[in-house]
Amino acid sequence: MLRMAALISEKPRISAAVRFRVIRATLYWIGLGPAVWTFFLGLTDQLGANPMRTLEQTLGLWALRFLIATLAVTPFRDLTGISLLRYRRALGLLAFYYALLHFTTYIVLDQGLNLSAIAADIVKRPYITIGMLAFAVLVPLAATSNDTMVRRMGRAWSRLHRWVYLAAAAAAVHFLLVVKSWTMEPVVYFAIVAILLGYRLYKRLRGSRGNRRRKPVPTR
């Protein structure tokens, strides 16, 4: 730590890169905090009557929250001028890690590895089917979320990563379909996702109508 501090004060050009790495690492650790904490509470019998369900729901909720955070980076920059673009990949990966943990909880703790029950669920239950769709979409995005792939794929990378819109929409619908009746929470999350996606659509429409000659406004 001391050495790092020394580095930062002595070499300002390196310090920006170091600071980025430190912030990003902190983001990952803090971001994974709720997963670790909830799992710990579950192991020590502090998650209430149905700990499996609480863990499953908490992980699903954080997956959705990080998806929303990922989608919020661009509008946040447009609105405030503050760019968090450098951290967007970390946010997206956190969303994926939570979705993976959520899915694993479902398979192992909820369904007890009963493969036929899981297969039946995925085929027959719309909310599971849609959750699965959201997760399936996130897999290739997570797999290509590294510098090598960004470089190698070029423009195809941006096109591929636009699928995150579908993942977010599917996740929001998945949440709506989980609950027994209309309640506030999934509706609020759905509205947030709708606003974030609507914002892209709005920018795109405005870009293609009024300013046809100009360079297209970046939509992401």
Binding site: A49, D110, R125
Partner: peptide, 16 residues
Amino acid sequence: RWSQATEMPIGKGLFA
């Protein structure tokens, strides 16, 4: 929206 073939017993911990 879900199967009724099985049930999760309450109060049996995370690995119920």
